[in-house]
Design a protein around this nucleic acid. Structure first.
Length: 580
DNA sequence: GCCGTTTTCGGCCCGACTGTTTTCAGTCG
């Protein structure tokens, strides 16, 4: 079941799309879209409180009219007028708008001219040459439309990929661009730099005196299979992996504003430009200018934000979910967690269960990353498919852990733990007598994902009430682009975490990123603590930590809320302090 | 539909590109 906040946001977005089809005033449409984003940055409890007290209009971008709509949505689940608009424009028409190069105007033109928005019927119309007869369309746009319709009917249009699938290739390409002729600075930009969960393409920005030479260098990268376009300052290519990469090259004096512009998000940029206007400045990728067209000197993003009267806003926060207002008010977290803050690797598997590296290899790798400890948390006995450990196995493993600690100490420690399955009735998978002897207990769901919301919520809350439960592993169970989260009332899970002191995991496995940034933000609002974990099954996967850190930052997580920024002894004792 | 350190009305973010046009609308980021 979707929570109230999610359904309100969805309704506002639906309304915006309907109004686009309706040909409504563009700024009215924008108002709905901005309101949706604004609410995304507010916790559900705060939203309900603002509705109850009639103070919704204290949010930027929500005036009397939208406040009324949101109140109606919260109270009744309906929005007057939305249903009527939805019926006027069928779902197929709404889906058309998502096709590349098709917006509301052209979708409507197709629908009206052909009397249908059904993708299969449109394919036929393209093949019969009927689309090119429609005013505003021609031979080229007919071909483009046909191609994207066929893709839509084939594997679907979700050509987004998990960030981690893209990042290594993007970083290799960045290193290559940095070696281009005359390159002064180069950086990743776009959703990759913001560490979004999924990315559609990769954006790079570089500075050099002669753009053309760098662009030629770029298009000669061995993995390039197709050059989509190459102009004076931009080249766009397709790699053999199917990934699209765009490179912009500017003079170094323009690097900071170009990098900022192409990092986005679009909504963040829009709001920042509005702020600039109010200060009598205009901001674009080509610089910050005053009203007389004089260019301000901007050498880096720090300087850009400073000229606008703001502290630096890290890329992970640039989603227009309240970060600019918070920055203006001095309310941005001043101790946003960083990778350097993390002192221990939490949640790891070895060859004792389903890992691919030995315990010794894992320990040495963690130590060489500068970590002070690694928690050994194999699967428990119920997870037979993953080589889960029986109590006897766990005791045997302790002997190896003790030996390794004698060898690798005293500045590095393996902590004794387990990742216990949460059974169907919410019990943990090992006897209490054993759980109390462990340094930490992660408990996670690995089976029976499909329970209904009431039973699943009860199952998780029951586990959290266990006095030896320290950390809830991958709390929502989602797999990015593959599996939706469990049917779980997150609000109650967060509340129980606050009451019991149970720590919620931010699992850095790039297919999970669980909790999500949005849930991290709700956890922060409630004072719930987090641990940033790798869920590593090999030494290479210790690198998952960066995704956990980035996801936590996207949820504005403070260092002080993250338990594995503590040294080993404090980490163990703070977990022991649970269940007051 | 929102908003106000020039405005309670009249503005509202910026630029590039594409394809279809013959001066520009629509789309995109």
């Amino acid at each position: 079941m979707a929570d109230v906040k999610t359904s309100v946001i969805r309704a506002l977005k639906e309304m915006a799309l309907s109004l686009k089809l309706e040909g409504a005033n563009a700024f009215r449409i924008q108002a709905y879209e901005q309101a949706a984003r604004q609410l995304a940055g507010v916790s559900e409890d705060r939203l309900l409180e603002l509705v109850r007290t009639g103070r919704l209009t204290t949010l930027v971008g929500i005036g009397p009219s939208l406040a009324e709509h949101v109140t109606e949505l919260v109270n009744t689940g309906q929005l007057t007028g939305l249903e009527e608009l939805t019926e006027r424009y069928p779902d197929e028409l709404r889906a058309l708008v998502r096709l590349p190069s098709i917006g509301p105007r052209r979708a409507l033109a197709l629908w009206e001219a052909l009397g249908t928005a059904d993708p299969a019927a449109l394919v036929e119309a393209c093949q019969q040459g009927r689309v090119r007869e429609i005013p505003g369309f021609g031979r080229n746009s007919e071909q483009t439309l046909l191609a994207s319709l066929q893709q839509l009917l084939g594997e679907g249009l979700t050509d987004r990929r998990p960030l981690a699938e893209v990042l290594p290739e993007a970083e290799r390409l960045l290193a290559y661009v940095q070696q281009g002729p005359g390159v002064v600075r180069a950086s990743l930009a776009g959703s990759v730099r913001r560490f979004a969960e999924t990315v559609g393409d990769v954006d790079l920005v570089a500075s050099a005196p002669r753009a053309r030479a760098v662009l030629d260098h770029f298009t000669r990268w061995p993995d390039v299979v197709k050059v989509r376009g190459s102009g004076e300052s931009l080249a766009s290519v397709i790699l053999d992996s199917g990934l699209q990469v765009d490179l912009r090259v500017v003079r170094d004096a323009d690097f900071a504003t170009a990098l900022h512009h192409f990092t986005g998000s679009k909504a963040h940029n829009v709001r920042l430009r509005t702020l600039a206007r109010r200060k009598g400045l205009t901001l674009s990728e080509w610089g910050l200018h005053d009203l007389k067209g004089r260019k301000k000197r901007v050498t880096d993003e720090d300087g850009l934000y400073a000229l606008l009267g703001l502290p630096f806003i890290p890329p992970e926060l640039r989603e227009d979910t309240g970060e600019i207002q918070a920055a203006l008010a001095g309310d941005l977290p001043d101790d946003l967690v960083t990778e350097k803050d993390v002192l221990g690797i939490v949640h790891s598997h070895s060859t004792w269960s389903d890992g691919r590296s030995s315990l010794r290899e894992m320990a040495l790798a963690a130590r060489s990353l500068g970590m002070q400890y690694l928690t050994v948390t194999e699967h428990s006995q119920t997870a037979g498919y993953a080589g889960g450990l029986t109590p006897a196995d766990v005791r045997r493993q302790w002997r190896e852990i003790d030996a390794l600690n004698r060898e690798l100490g005293p500045h590095f420690r393996l902590l004794k733990g387990i990742e216990s399955d949460i059974l169907e009735d919410g019990r943990l998978d090992l006897p209490d007598a054993m759980l109390t002897q462990l340094d930490l207990v992660i408990a996670s769901i690995h089976a029976r994902h499909g329970m209904d919301g009431a039973r699943m919520t009860h199952r998780v809350l029951t586990a959290m009430d266990h006095p030896r439960m320290d950390i809830l592993g991958h709390p929502t169970g989602r797999l990015i682009l593959r599996r939706p989260p469990y049917d779980l009332e997150m609000k109650r899970v967060l509340e129980r975490a606050r009451q019991t002191g149970v720590v919620l995991e931010v699992n850095g496995n790039p297919n999970r990123l669980d909790l999500s940034g949005a849930h991290v933000r709700e956890a922060m609002d409630r004072g719930v603590r987090l641990c940033l974990s790798c869920d590593s099954h090999s030494t290479a996967e210790l690198g998952h930590l960066r995704f956990a850190v980035a996801t936590a930052r996207r949820g504005w997580a403070r260092r002080s809320a993250v338990v594995n920024t503590l040294p080993a002894a404090d980490f163990v004792s703070t977990l022991r302090g649970n269940h007051p």
